[in-house]
Design a protein around this nucleic acid. Structure first.
Lengths: 204, 204
DNA sequence: TTGACATCGGACACTCATGTCTGATTTATT
DNA sequence: AATAAATCAGACATGAGTGTCCGATGTCAA
């Protein structure tokens, strides 16, 4: 509780030098990229991409596991920030969801490979817990949509969120497979998600 | 074309002994189970589950890659067979799709782990090609539904198929995470898929 | 029953990745 | 310019997995 703050200023035990900060950033970026394309990327491969020597990684991350944890937090943090920037609490629910999706889906798609990695590495519960920084922002939006009759009220919020995430990943996967043209993908994806979670106008 | 037959009787170069057939079956089953829970399962682990010694696997499959290929075909084959048994060409499209999903979704969910494995191992195109034995059966069903006005005509067939598959996997994932009770899962999944791909009664 | 087939049990060489350690060198900070 | 911090380059031990080989034992099929 009192150990970690969001601003991360006070609890710094000893200050890191500027080049160390740069190394850490380069390593996280490289790991993100490498692991997204191949979840089994080695430390050597990540180091190569980051432009540092393998031992340097171990200066900042004690083990491979620790690096993977950091990368996970890093990725989730980026998506959470983009989500926040799209103001999910503002406006009519359907429009708000579409706005958030347009702002975040490419990032989410980029991290698609990480999901497979963490699905194997972490328990389903732990994985879900780590996604909370994003999910906690979307949950109120879905709930609001249900209360206002815009979204299906017969299905759990957690399920609608899962389906949304799933369709986003499917879109990126279909693009890679060449079956969905990139220019159309965004509209197709959003149209599909809305079709899936919107309340029917009466037809059951 | 003339090399492989569906009945697989004529092209057998030399007949295998009965215990060898048993071993192969045990290995495939064990591999399926092991790889579904951990895509990085070792040959030792698979051999242990199959109740054979590791070297025995290499008698029937020259390399790990070859085993993985065989397991993939085996899994797809099982789903394809179950699909065929549900008669996707019979009756009204919405009912037909629901019937096929009820008949195959647990199997699909069981192979969920394999997907992650093969996503890393194969190209997106190759992966799609291997799924054809199942997809080729569902494609006509979706097309028929579009023609009859039951399914959304504004989205590509391949996309509707991808979304369907995706939601099936999401259901199994949510069950594992404890956020979707197993008893409800089947209805929730089918209701969601139909909601996603059915044509709106007029509302856009 | 007999001979070929198949598995067993274990050993072996090989590769690859992880994590640690060293001394030398470069870079940031004051 | 001086000091501390950080990186480099490379070596090392360790562990795990793959693929191969062997003699011995068991089992199917004719």
């Amino acid at each position: 509780m009192a150990q970690k703050t969001t601003t991360a200023e006070a609890p710094t035990p000893k200050r890191r030098r500027a080049d160390a900060d740069r190394s850490v950033a380069a390593i996280l970026d490289a790991a993100l990229e490498a692991l997204a394309s191949d979840p089994d990327s080695s430390m050597s491969e990540i180091a190569r991409r980051a432009g540092v020597v393998r031992a340097t990684i171990y200066v900042h991350f004690p083990t491979r596991e620790a690096l993977l944890d950091a990368v996970m937090d890093y990725a989730v943090g980026q998506v959470a920030e983009a989500t926040r920037g799209a103001e999910p609490e503002r406006g009519e629910p359907v429009a708000a969801l579409a706005r958030v999706l347009r702002a975040t889906w490419r990032q989410l798609a980029q991290f698609h490979g990480l999901l497979a990695l963490n699905t194997a590495r972490l328990s389903a519960e732990e994985l879900h817990r780590r996604h909370l920084p994003v999910l906690d922002q979307l949950e109120p939006l879905i709930e609001r949509g249900q209360e206002q009759g815009a979204f299906r009220p017969d299905l759990p919020v957690s399920w609608l969120l899962a389906v949304t995430r799933s369709i986003v990943h499917t879109a990126s996967h279909e693009i890679r497979g060449g079956r969905l043209p990139d220019p159309e993908a965004e509209d197709v994806m959003i149209s599909t998600i809305l079709g899936a979670i919107r309340a029917n106008g009466g037809r059951g």
